[in-house]
Simulated assay, not measured.
Amino acid sequence: MTALSNFPITSRWPAAHPELLQLYSAPTQNGVKVSIMLEEIGLPYEPHYIDIGKDETWSPEFLSLNPNGKIPAIIDPDGPDGRPLCLFESGAILLYLAEKSGKFLPAESSRRYETISWLFLQMAGFGPTFGQLGFFHKFAGSAYEDKRPLNRYVTESKRLLRLLENRLDRRKWVMGNDFTIVDISLLGWVRGLVEFYNAREIVAYDDLVEVPRWLESCLARPAVQRGLNIPARP
């Protein structure tokens, strides 16, 4: 096993337990995907808080792990073939952890690819759309006189929520009876849309039935509750 000290990021965020998987993240909609997954599968890990408000993701140390400068990212000292693995992009990390643990990703081939399709939809659709809505509704974009960008993302967010509503009809979880990485990838973004971005009214969230029921079931899971606050903010 290669010493973690060989990785530049550990000079700024030292590993107290280098034998454990190292998580570099923050409790954002993207970040909590990985902390929730780690809590759900029970894999021991060491979290490191990355302060995105202070642009720590753009430091040379962090960029050595993720050249795209975004959280979350991991180093698994016990990666494939016993060699350390550095990985970024939350969707890729979820897939890796699912395969490593044998949990939350169907083994049967057709179901596995269907699950991956929904995971990619979250990555390409739900996350970017909800994030842009949040910018134009809550943050600097709210001051723009031209409301066409906001209206565009409101309309698309409502469409995606209705898609999810239809998918959850007669299903406990997005993929049916089994909780999967799709639920893990989506729950933080749906929760953030209504609670953090304060968009409940403009996306007509209270007109939905299945999505609120599903989100409540997600949030009732103890591992989800733990993961939503990891890494802890200072």
Score class of each variant (00 low, 15 high):
D51C: 06
A107R: 13
L208R: 04
D207A: 14
S217T: 15
L161E: 10
T2E: 14
T155C: 11
P128Q: 03
L97Q: 05
T10S: 05
M123V: 07
L95W: 10
M1W: 14
M123W: 00
Y197W: 14
G42E: 02
E216K: 14
G91F: 00
C86H: 10
Y45F: 15
G53K: 09
E145R: 10
V34W: 06
V32H: 00
V154I: 15
A140P: 07
E39P: 15
G188F: 02
P212I: 06
N151S: 13
P14C: 03
F130I: 11
G102N: 06
E210F: 06
N6V: 12
L65R: 03
A223R: 08
E89V: 02
E39G: 05
Y96I: 02
T10I: 02
G42D: 03
D51P: 15
E61A: 13
Y197F: 15
E46T: 01
A16M: 13
C86F: 12
R112E: 04
E165I: 11
A15G: 04
L105Q: 01
I74H: 02
R233L: 13
L21E: 04
F126G: 03
G127T: 04
L87R: 02
R162E: 09
R162L: 12
G79Q: 08
P149M: 07
L163W: 14
G125P: 10
E210A: 15
D207E: 15
S142I: 08
I181A: 09
I71E: 00
G192A: 08
F179R: 00
S109C: 15
F135T: 02
Q122K: 04
V174S: 02
R221F: 07
N166H: 11
G125I: 09
F62Q: 00
D206W: 09
L43R: 03
V182C: 10
G131N: 11
R221L: 08
E46L: 03
E56C: 03
R111V: 14
A3E: 15
M1R: 11
E39F: 13
V34K: 04
G82H: 11
L87N: 00
V190W: 01
E210D: 14
D178Q: 13
R226K: 14
L95N: 14
A15K: 07
K103C: 15
K138Q: 10
P27I: 08
A223K: 11
G176A: 10
G125V: 12
S142C: 11
A107D: 13
L94M: 10
L164P: 00
E99L: 12
Q29W: 11
A98I: 06
R159K: 12
P80V: 00
Q22N: 09
L133S: 01
I71M: 05
G42L: 07
Y24F: 15
P60K: 09
F104S: 08
P67R: 05
P128W: 05
H137V: 07
Q132Y: 01
L87D: 08
L215P: 11
A26I: 12
T129K: 04
P84I: 09
C86K: 14
S11N: 12
P212L: 01
T28E: 08
K103W: 08
S110E: 13
F196L: 06
L160E: 04
Y144Q: 11
R162P: 04
P77Q: 03
C86P: 10
F120Q: 11
G192H: 07
K147N: 09
P8V: 06
L85G: 02
W118E: 04
G176D: 00
S110C: 12
Y96L: 05
E195W: 09
W173H: 06
R191M: 12
